[in-house]
Design a protein around this nucleic acid. Structure first.
Lengths: 213, 213
DNA sequence: CATCCCATGTAATATGTTACATGATTAC
DNA sequence: GTAATCATGTAACATATTACATGGGATG
């Protein structure tokens, strides 16, 4: 049920065709929130249309059909947002999973992946910052409007990833022990030092919520 | 194909039964990396066993079967980690999606959800910090060993979420305009001020990667 | 000896991906 | 006029969730 609400949300910002939406999933929210392919988007748009949650506002060249979110669609979206439990369940993030699995690699390989991770996260930050700047211009608002607020979430998330990757570089290492026996287990102390909590707390001294508003 | 590697990764840390793994998905990585239910885990374990990537190390009471990752399993995991593109594609994060959709709510409701978001993220941070402390004790290592490094990723991610939620509180608002017409669009300037980049940069002055190592 | 939790299994359904497929328009 | 890209559609397959189902062992 999440896909339809992702679509409604994108349409709220701007009427779009299935083709447009496919691109917007790829460019914006696909990287950190929800991804979808055109083969899922087109049928869902037709269903939403039948249910009156979206409506056709334009039929252009090449069979292009532009949809807009109706007020019923907005109501449905709001109902879902308020009703669904604010659980973190159902996460499927292959990127994060790979980071989770990283200690299984030998140190050299792990370091290489960490380097790529950091570079990728930095690239995402730059991409989203460009999106954000474009949104500021388009909306004439410093916060970039609704999508700008969202883009900031992506930016902060990827920054956290980059930050973690830098920290993790100093802590990978040690032997992988296959979980050892059922009761007796090797520990493989990687000889890490430095308290990670220091890093985790680093961003808090200048509280953004109270200073930037 | 991601599920099997998540399982192999968990087994690397410690031999487990399907039941154990179900709990570990819920408790640890399910919140930010990968989630799975027992109905998926049990069949996958049997498949992994047939392929020799895991092996049975114990059969306990009530039909309990404990598996361990074999060296073939470790090799397969490593191959996957090194081979798969380090893409960010295929994310399915309902939590993040909900944040993305938040601007569709009226300000009061959005603020309420943001409050819950922040509280939830803080709770996750505390939960993971407890996990981390337990890992430090269990591994006798300051970095908490492989799983500790992972836990830090979760901690930093959820901290970023909490940070964002505080910042976003000051920027939600304005009318939702259903995307306006196809060409003429309302803008709904939310009157935000303060540059979000300030917040995004907040954690960087004390570079964790260089000071903590 | 009943009740609760441990521990696994499976069937039905829903969701998502890959691959295949078609035609229209634009740019050259 | 032909190549590239826009734009949609669908079938086959893979993955994931929900619900139903069973029985063992511990606790009182």
């Amino acid at each position: 049920m999440a896909l339809r609400y992702a679509i409604l949300g994108l349409l709220l910002d701007r009427p779009s065709s299935g083709y447009d939406l496919t691109g917007r999933f790829e460019d914006v929210i696909g990287a950190y929130a929800w991804d979808a392919k055109h083969s899922q988007i087109y049928p869902e748009l037709r269903r939403l249309d039948l249910e009156g949650l979206v409506e056709v506002v334009d039929r252009g060249a090449r069979g292009r059909v532009t949809y807009r979110c109706t007020k019923e669609g907005l109501a449905a979206l709001r109902a879902w947002l308020m009703a669904a439990p604010a659980s973190t369940g159902g996460v499927k993030n292959e990127h994060a999973l790979r980071l989770f699995l990283l200690p299984a690699l030998e140190p050299d390989d792990a370091l290489e992946v960490l380097r790529q991770t950091e570079a990728g996260a930095v690239a995402q930050v730059e991409h989203l910052e460009a999106e954000f700047a474009a949104l500021q211009e388009r909306t004439g608002s410093a916060s970039g409007g609704p999508l700008g607020i969202t883009a900031q979430f992506g930016i902060l998330s990827f920054r956290a990833t980059a930050q973690w990757a830098r920290w993790a570089r100093d802590h990978v290492g040690g032997e992988v022990v296959l979980g050892g026996d059922v009761e007796a287990r090797g520990d493989g102390d990687p000889g890490g030092d430095g308290d990670p909590a220091d890093i985790a707390n680093a961003g808090r001294s200048a509280d953004p919520g109270s200073t930037a508003g």
